[in-house]
Design a protein around this nucleic acid. Sequence first.
RNA 1: UCUUCCUUAGCUCAGUUGGUUAGAGCACCUGACUGUUAAUCAGGGGGUCGUUGGUUCAAGUCCAACAGGAAGAGCCA
Length: 477
Amino acid sequence: MQRTKIKEILYSDKLDYECVVKGWVRSFRNNQFIAVNDGSCLDSLQIVVDSNNTDKDILDHITAGASVSARGIIKASLGKGQKVELIADSLEVLGRCDPDHYPLQLKNRPSLEYLREHAHLRMRTHVFGAIFRVRHSLAFAVHEFFHKKGFVYLNTPIITASDAEGAGEMFQVTTLDLNNVPRKEDGSVDYSEDFFGRSTNLTVSGQLEGELGALALGEIYTFGPTFRAENSNTTRHLAEFWMIEPEMAFYDLAENAQLAQEFIQYVIQYVLDHNRADLEFLDQRLAEEEKQKPQNERSEFSLLEKLRMVTANSFEKITYTEAIDILLKSKPYQKKQFKYDVSWGTDLQSEHERYLVEKHFKKPVIVTDYPKEIKSFYMRLNDDEKTVAAMDILAPGIGEIVGGSQREERLDVLESRMQEMNVPVEEMSWFLDTRRFGTVPHAGFGLGFERLVLFATGMTNIRDVIPFPRTPKSANF
RNA sequence: UCUUCCUUAGCUCAGUUGGUUAGAGCACCUGACUGUUAAUCAGGGGGUCGUUGGUUCAAGUCCAACAGGAAGAGCCA
């Protein structure tokens, strides 16, 4: 008999039918009730066993973490905690779980840090089960959103020879023997002997290749792994993360910002519609965590309230110049509570972004038109020649979740910007070809998928929303 | 990379101004229990106090270095 998933049983009104259920034991109560979870949903199914008529050897091995298979009839539950339960006719232990050595003792509420060190098993817990089901739904919604809009999913290379992307330190990819590196006469490494015949790295962004796609297919998006070898030790940075990068021909900055907002609202609405139980559980988890904090640090909204606010309201849209004005007039600035000074021309610091998003507007904020000196060479120069058509979307609790811009499509302007910022023009000739041959105005943005998952789940550490986090000094599993 | 904090039983954490044999809850083991809901009840076992060095009559407690972890900053998504 084929197994039935627990989700199907719990989310259906059907009764009095026979089925087979397989999963992992969460708890065994009163020598009679086994709570079994199979990962298909947050809740467990209660299996009722007649212990007088069950082999003692089986009963002795019904322990937390053991895997079991049970066959029986689904009945309306006599107890109060659940609607239905499985009255078992037969019960089998598929895989024993020695409770003395099993690292997950869920009744002890192990800390997130402890679970992080046992990442190979943490997906069996309520919290991580919920997180990774929400993560899946978000990924699915990303593809659905772009597909419905007619975007082409483009796979940009993971290994790249371009070192001019300028988005951060790169991981080198090589098959050279590091104990015996071939050298040229001048002592430098001879990369002509390397696998690709040149120096290569893991990608830090698929944007430049994405632009090539957009200037042929119209609208494309990438969704793939991205690598930064920065020594960043924060709750919002990973060395390996997943980035979504749409790139659109014929879009200007305003259309770009509009798309980004629509996109975020769509995927959040998708999980509100499809992951209700998981989000309610994460909402409660966050509420309990908030209770531990002092009153003035607590969030005034619950997770579900925050998510509904994001889908229901337009994001606030301001220019960099307006943001500086707001900050200069703000109480913390006038009371000299900011650690960093505020002045036109310098980048917004975390404390400034947090003030704008969490105190002033209390919702996601799109900041546009930054000074050209603090942004990348490929962003389109505005007519004032001081600012570029850039946009960052700042989210409460996360900070920068989207970074994007209208791209510089004018060959002469782009070349002079590259020279100003010491970007090797010759090496980038393939990129400049798009501007030489049939250039068009276009725009795009990058969104850190894990930061989106952070926002949707209310988790606070990015290492808890990716199954196997890679951070400096840590690449286990 | 910088700053600050943390490391005591399998887990979560107490441990006073340095002072005898380092505690609790849960988990675990033994037993009881057929309507439990993180089941409950009775009994039991379990510790090189992160590592190394130092101060002291005496260090879980004070000092230093190292290791691991966390928070914040910078960089960014």
